[in-house]
Amino acid sequence: MSRAVAEPTPAVASGPRQPLSPAKRKQRRTLLALAAIAYLITFLVILPILWIVLLSFQPSADILNDPLSLGHLGLANYVNAVQSLPLLRMYANTFLIAIAAVSLGTVVSFMAAFALTRMVFRHRRLQSAVKFYFLAGLAVPVYILLFPVYRLDLALGLFGTYGALILPYAAVSIPFNTLLMTGFLADFPAEIEEAAIIDGAGLWRLCISVVLPIMRPVIATILIFNIVYVFNEFPFASILINDPNMVTVSLAVSRFQGQFTVDYGGMMASATMVLIPQLVIYAFFQRQIIAGMTAGAVKG
């Protein structure tokens, strides 16, 4: 946001009314048109989200029969959701698992991606083989993993601990992280790093103070996606969590779905409550992506 304040954007700028050159005027008109398109697309995209929020204030019966009626809006669903869900505990558990799993997954993937793009293997084929080994994980549907991972957690003594979810979540994120990191690293010329090595930088300093800053936008993107993944992951959470004290937010919505009963209002309200913290997290990391612009400029 500070950027936006620092340099007022032309679309809203109301500078001194000087006659503009025809080129400038055309540029300005184009920008206005583009802004209009951007607003329109954004509006279309968020319309369904606004709709969940609206539905979350309606009684379940209205949601099913007349979702457009606005006659009985109220907070009943939220009261109900707050009363029947251990929300604080859910958020605490989710944050703990997300922070641990995402850090672990990102750190190990970063190390691997560095090795796969920057280090010189004696056998080049081995290097690309390892990379494809990781990338193949992208094609694996989670349901193939459920049963064996449960057994693995039991065998490793992780079952009933947070580790039971942290390790598989971190492992599942490796293919995605590797794809993004190796892809972006490959796009960067290695000159600065070579310069740093000539300056006498060791492996760790090279990673942490040279490569990491360059990768900032990518890492921010990866963190966002991984956190969103942990927040929404359902199949593992529903199978690997046995202790009611360890439930995560991704299980919140399903709590309203019984064998013969579904509380649509409760689902919508809990969905809204899960959504908002995630949007806040996104807004936070998004600044890191923007900040990356300046970091990227350093090397220029």
Partner: peptide, 8 residues
Amino acid sequence: VFGPAIIA
């Protein structure tokens, strides 16, 4: 615009 990607 990223909003929908967040929703389970």
